[in-house]
Design a binder for these strands. Sequence first.
DNA 1: AATGAATGAGAATTCATTCAT
DNA 2: CATGAATGAATTCTCATTCAT
Lengths: 195, 195, 195, 195
Amino acid sequence: MATVAEKKRLKRNKILEAAYELFASKGMHMTPIDEVVKKAGVAKGTFYLYFRDKYELTDQIILHKSTQIVRQVLAEVREQGEKECLDAVEQILLFLDKMISTMAQNRPVLTLLSGKISTVYDLLADENSEFRDTAQSLVELMMQIGLTAEQAGKQLYVMLNMFCSVCCDAVLSGSPYSVDELRPEIRRMAQKLLT
Amino acid sequence: MATVAEKKRLKRNKILEAAYELFASKGMHMTPIDEVVKKAGVAKGTFYLYFRDKYELTDQIILHKSTQIVRQVLAEVREQGEKECLDAVEQILLFLDKMISTMAQNRPVLTLLSGKISTVYDLLADENSEFRDTAQSLVELMMQIGLTAEQAGKQLYVMLNMFCSVCCDAVLSGSPYSVDELRPEIRRMAQKLLT
Amino acid sequence: MATVAEKKRLKRNKILEAAYELFASKGMHMTPIDEVVKKAGVAKGTFYLYFRDKYELTDQIILHKSTQIVRQVLAEVREQGEKECLDAVEQILLFLDKMISTMAQNRPVLTLLSGKISTVYDLLADENSEFRDTAQSLVELMMQIGLTAEQAGKQLYVMLNMFCSVCCDAVLSGSPYSVDELRPEIRRMAQKLLT
Amino acid sequence: MATVAEKKRLKRNKILEAAYELFASKGMHMTPIDEVVKKAGVAKGTFYLYFRDKYELTDQIILHKSTQIVRQVLAEVREQGEKECLDAVEQILLFLDKMISTMAQNRPVLTLLSGKISTVYDLLADENSEFRDTAQSLVELMMQIGLTAEQAGKQLYVMLNMFCSVCCDAVLSGSPYSVDELRPEIRRMAQKLLT
DNA sequence: AATGAATGAGAATTCATTCAT
DNA sequence: CATGAATGAATTCTCATTCAT
């Protein structure tokens, strides 16, 4: 077993997780590297062995966490979609709904995501992404309701962005409406957009 | 003429404007007070005569600039709406369209607004806001298409948030789509949502 | 009295003096700013009010100290030269001799000067230097022994550099010869060069 | 063939050369060990197998490079001296002239040598040096022009130091005069000193 | 012998804020 | 009211050196 590379990956992850929790609760600008390494249980120098600087760390966290969320949501959608034989519209609605739920339960990640939402979309759209296939099938689902490939792509992006943004606001500030207050309305709007 | 109070207001505005430009281009965290006061042409101590601290300044800028934008957009909508005798849906679409255009032309303000979009809505919804009446009429317009007051309020919020968010991404990063690419799609979606 | 500018000059000088002593005894690279400010009795931030960074400080010290030394030497030469009605060659020899003595007594300054000797010459040659006139008269003295202006300039430079360099080595390391061992030899060589 | 000891010597030399180039271009204080070992193609730990610390490395480089230069210069002088049957003065002048030329062509080595010129002399004077004999013959040459052994030693030292110092300044900063501008003057002075 | 991950003391520098003038 | 010199805690990042593999 490649214990050496494995240990490195583990250490990197420890830093990533420690930073995530801190950044999420106090914001990146309010979290000194000192605290991150202390929480991660590594030396200060070790941090700079794995990340060029604080900004690279931030980027990595966003990537890391977004990936986690998208991966989880897609897995659930796929499973439930198959089990319940959902049609195109229903699957997309389910995807958006799950995204909202998951984000609502991941308050901290929203703090980081806020204002960088296109990152999530980039994850889906990137040629080399592990999600490429799924993203493709989402677009195909939307084409089944009569959109061109381009329209489908754009609309998917706008809807994702829209729901994420509303979620961020709703979850983070709860003002003027909470997620739960907004959720039925969002669903109604999504349905309207998809028919 | 109250030259004393007037001069104070002027100096305060000079600081606000200087900070706005700096914050917009480099971000608040990357802009030291030193630079702000230098650009504003006042002494460092003077700054603290007008603002409690850097955070109050930031808040004030967002308020200041959002107000400017909303005020401008609403004025244009009102004028054109009257001139062209637009119906409810058309007025709302015009409002959203103008918001997009104005934001697209105010790249810097988006930097600040990004992730704080509900601020704009708060402006509209606040009891004491100068926009209260207009916001009220927007809601009433939406009720004309068959929504309850509550639904109308929420939908207005969601649509605003959605469009602002998409604009921020599109204008600021241009990725994955530019505003101009997205604008027709957005309009189509808005229309669908309002019928 | 302009107490404000005066106080600033004083504080700057305090830093300069503190740094000089520290740099001279341990070398600039071995002296943290922390120690400098502590010795100067000012806050760390104050340091950066007066000097861009450690390197500017170093340059300033060299300038400051070289100026002090040259000023002192020239004053002595002028005085003694007049009193004893010395001729050209004798005055130059006296100048070099005094330079050697003064440097020998200013061990610390040599630490800083070592390897940056042309600084001293620059001081003499700089158009705006307070020493311009004196430097000019040194050159004129050398022209009296039959050199062209250009030859005189170069020879003055070479001799200065040569003597400073030998002094640095001799004073700082005492190896292979001490200043006192070398001084007669140097004098003999200077005399030879000037006739 | 002693491949073991040979390989070690080779690795040591690789480090020495890598460090030399780096130190020469950016200065020792600005060159981290990291860069040295990377350039040398060895691991960081390996460095400490061959050198106690960074300071020992620096010393070794200066020694290494000075030796190279002196060895080269002396070889050339010896060869040309024999071929052209030069007399004492001419040989010394040739030696100094070659030193200047070689240094002018070895800009980087001067960076390191600057302020440590007596090292070169130490090389010549050290009892166990490979140059002991040559240095001795240089002294003897000077005694041929009527100096005592002691005077000869000192004068050789002063002249060496003087020329090296002037070279460092001239080559490194080119200010106030370049090597080429100074060279005739230096030669003239050397000639004067040797007669 | 060689490696390179890990260390952590330390260094430079910044900057929001205060306060005497 | 206005000023800007002074502060020093806080922060980021570096790097020589060690040591387990």
